[in-house]
């Protein structure tokens, strides 16, 4: 066992770190685009809203593995040479953007229009209106939901092993070809994912409980 850890622990740990980097950076980039998409959805402009809606529905109604495969095929056709890890990161960002857009849209919709009208009546500008009125109410809704999304992303990212992105699941496949310790390696990797995903879920639950009193709807 100690031999195993010293020889192959590094490979697994590296895969684990790549999963964390892949998911967190992809999540951060995707969230920015998700916010933009959410604004398009609630903008009231038909064309913009339709465009954003099509994107969101397309991503939300297709499997992540297919999305990743399509992205890799597209990269090949366009002759764009990127590290597989970077392509995987883009895939995570594309996926995040769609789900994040729905989360933020739901939050924005839960704020009554009267508040915006009231703010305008008090001559509060759009920036200040967002900072002082919309954002503080958005947070208790969006934060727990997006942390939950992060947990889902960690699980979905395992599919990236299917397109040879060197993340945790892929590193497991590598170690197994060298050791033939099939059950042991998958069990270790399972535990690593469990620790990662369950702690993120616990954080989401903590945030939800903590921010409940901020939520005007309850």
């Amino acid at each position: 066992m100690t031999d195993f850890v010293t020889t192959y622990g590094g490979t697994l740990l590296q895969g684990f770190l790549w999963t964390i980097i892949l998911v967190s950076v992809g999540f951060a980039i995707g969230s920015v685009f998700g916010a933009i998409l959410a604004m398009m959805l609630v903008s009231g402009r038909r064309g913009l809203a339709w465009l954003a809606r099509s994107y969101v529905e397309l991503i939300r109604n297709t499997p992540f593995l297919i999305q990743a495969m399509l992205l890799f095929a597209l990269m090949g056709i366009l002759r764009i040479r990127l590290e597989p890890v970077l392509v995987g990161l883009v895939a995570v960002a594309i996926y995040t953007a769609a789900y994040m857009a729905e989360i933020i849209r739901g939050g924005l919709n839960s704020i009554p229009d009267g508040q915006r009208e009231g703010a305008r009546a008090l001559a509060i500008g759009p920036v200040l209106q967002f900072r002082l009125i919309i954002f503080p109410q958005l947070l208790p809704f969006v934060l727990p939901a997006s942390v939950n999304l992060l947990a889902t992303l960690c699980k979905e990212s395992a599919f990236l092993a299917g397109v040879s992105v060197a993340e945790l699941t892929f590193s497991g496949q590598v170690v197994i070809t060298q050791t033939f310790l099939i059950f042991e390696v998958w069990a270790i990797i399972g535990v690593l994912y469990l620790v990662l995903v369950l702690s993120i879920m616990a954080l989401a639950e903590f945030l939800e409980r903590r921010m409940m009193w901020l939520n005007p709807a309850r």
Partner: peptide, 12 residues
């Protein structure tokens, strides 16, 4: 089941 990726469950 909520914490384990389906990929890992299938591989296991």
């Amino acid at each position: 089941m909520r914490g384990l990726p389906i990929v890992i469950l299938v591989f296991l």
